[in-house]
Simulated assay, not measured.
Amino acid sequence: MTAVRAHPPLPRSLTRPPVELELIIPAFNEQRRLPSTITATLRYLAGRPWSSSVVVVDNNSVDGTLDALDRFTGTPTGLPATGLDVGFHVIGCGEQGKGAAVRRGIETSSARFIGFADADNATPIDTLDRVVELLRAGHGAVIASRHAPGAHLEVEQGTLRRGGGALFRTLAHLTLPEIADTQCGFKFFPGPLAREIVRDCRIDGFAFDVELLAHVVKAGRDVVEVPVEWTDKDGSTFSARRDGLRSMADLLRISLAR
């Protein structure tokens, strides 16, 4: 099981300038998939009526992930030829795991709204239109869902991943029985709430999403699921053998800790 440790707040000197919306993308060996996702995200955000930035949290990548991001750095936009005013930042996280990377991004944010998305762009980025509307309405968490009424799977996962996902959902429902999909990698929160509850999060791996949502509910806030048209993408760094058992054990820890 993952060791329990405290996560004290970071010094304010390490935080980024405030914007209305900050989108975190955790990245581990995402040289191939990340550039197209960043391009699509920056172009979308440039057309929105709210200030925003994209933060890639590199999680000890050993491929060319950082080299692939070079063309997006050096200007406020990340798109040198467009003049679009969207912030772009790359930070590091020495602790391994999606949860650790997302936590690092939240801790260093000063945005009004903060959230994270996967590097594969499986959830359409324009889902953020509805997400921001719901956040402004005062909801505690707004998450994309592949299993809420109205959702559609454009390309499904393979049989093994679907079977593992079904087992994961069954265990996650022990903690969050009202949430249909805890693992779709597209979740957003009011910034102050996210920065407060993340201090009590201990999971570094893929079960981090469940732990974070459990803290939202524990704080007396609601979770809204937005149905999406989701597409499975090749190249996931999730390993059923390496990460599956650990995730199941983390889920049991989360349930017992309630």
Rank of each mutant, 00 (worst) to 15 (best):
I114W: 02
F188H: 01
P227W: 07
D85Q: 12
R246F: 13
A172N: 01
Y44P: 04
T73P: 01
P9T: 07
K187V: 10
A240S: 15
S61F: 09
G150M: 02
V62F: 11
A144N: 06
R241E: 14
L213N: 04
A214V: 01
L213C: 02
A68K: 09
D120F: 12
G163P: 01
R253S: 13
T123V: 15
L10G: 09
V198T: 15
S36I: 10
R246G: 12
V102K: 02
I143E: 04
P26W: 10
S52D: 00
A219T: 01
E20G: 10
T108R: 06
L160K: 08
N59A: 11
D67V: 12
P8N: 07
R146T: 08
G87H: 03
V86K: 02
S36Q: 13
E154Q: 13
K233V: 15
G78W: 00
R221V: 00
A68M: 14
N121Q: 06
V142W: 08
E229D: 13
T15L: 12
L213A: 02
V210Q: 04
A151Y: 02
V223H: 04
D200M: 06
D234E: 15
L212R: 06
D181Q: 08
F72V: 03
R161G: 05
T73S: 14
R16E: 03
S247N: 14
A194K: 09
A6E: 12
A101D: 04
G92W: 05
D200H: 15
I106K: 04
T123L: 07
A240W: 14
P227E: 11
E196Y: 11
A3C: 12
D200L: 09
Q157N: 07
